[in-house]
């Protein structure tokens, strides 16, 4: 473990790269899912095919998806982010659409009766009520992406996976342990942090 102490900057760098990869991918996925989720909650007919396509993407093992992207976009961060976004869509769109559809019909009707436009309805009523479910989706997507992002190091995207893979290649256990440990800690931490947020939102909903 002496390696870890003398290479704190390398470890910090890998952790930072990993976090950036996760935040960028989840943010892009969230923006796409937000638009698609609102659309799908308004148009019940488009929901099943959207779920079918995103479930298909979600099922493809990550190493295979990254490999399939190589002929199209090569190696590096771009294919990594495309792959990670693809994995987040199912969970995010599903939770955003479900959250919006679970807003009670009489609440919506009362708001419309008060003369709200559909935009006001969305921003002031529907989104706040759907927020706990949306955050739950964000939590699951983030945890998934933290894990899969380790594999993205294999296509040169950097991050904590780099430590794991160089550790394997050099038969250097300390690198494996540090890389795997920090990636796990990041996943568990993201899960705990976002579940707290989720619980707090739920509690304020009920108050």
């Amino acid at each position: 473990m002496r390696w870890a102490l003398t290479h704190l900057d390398d470890i910090g760098q890998a952790t930072w790269e990993h976090a950036v990869l996760v935040v960028v991918s989840v943010s892009v996925a969230f923006l796409i899912s937000f638009a698609v989720g609102i659309w799908a909650s308004r148009q019940p007919r488009v929901y099943p095919p959207i779920m079918g396509i995103t479930a298909l993407l979600y099922t493809i093992p990550s190493l295979a998806l990254f490999a399939l992207l190589i002929p199209l976009v090569g190696l590096g961060r771009v294919p990594a982010i495309i792959g990670l976004v693809a994995y987040s869509l199912l969970i995010l769109i599903r939770n955003i659409a479900t959250g919006l559809r679970e807003v009670p019909a009489d609440v919506v009707e009362a708001a419309l009766g008060m003369g709200m436009s559909s935009w006001q309805l969305l921003v002031t009523i529907e989104l706040p009520l759907a927020m706990p479910i949306i955050i739950a989706g964000l939590r699951i997507a983030t945890v998934t992406v933290v894990g899969i992002a380790t594999i993205a190091a294999y296509i040169n995207a950097g991050g904590l996976g780099t430590l794991i893979f160089t550790g394997i290649a050099q038969d250097f256990p300390a690198k494996i342990v540090v890389g795997a440990g920090l990636a796990s800690a990041m996943a568990v931490g993201a899960d705990a942090g976002l579940s707290r947020l989720e619980r707090r939102l739920r509690a304020s909903r009920e108050a």
Partner: peptide, 9 residues
Amino acid sequence: TVPSLAVLA
């Protein structure tokens, strides 16, 4: 929540 690659590695 532990990444698959972490478990294997």
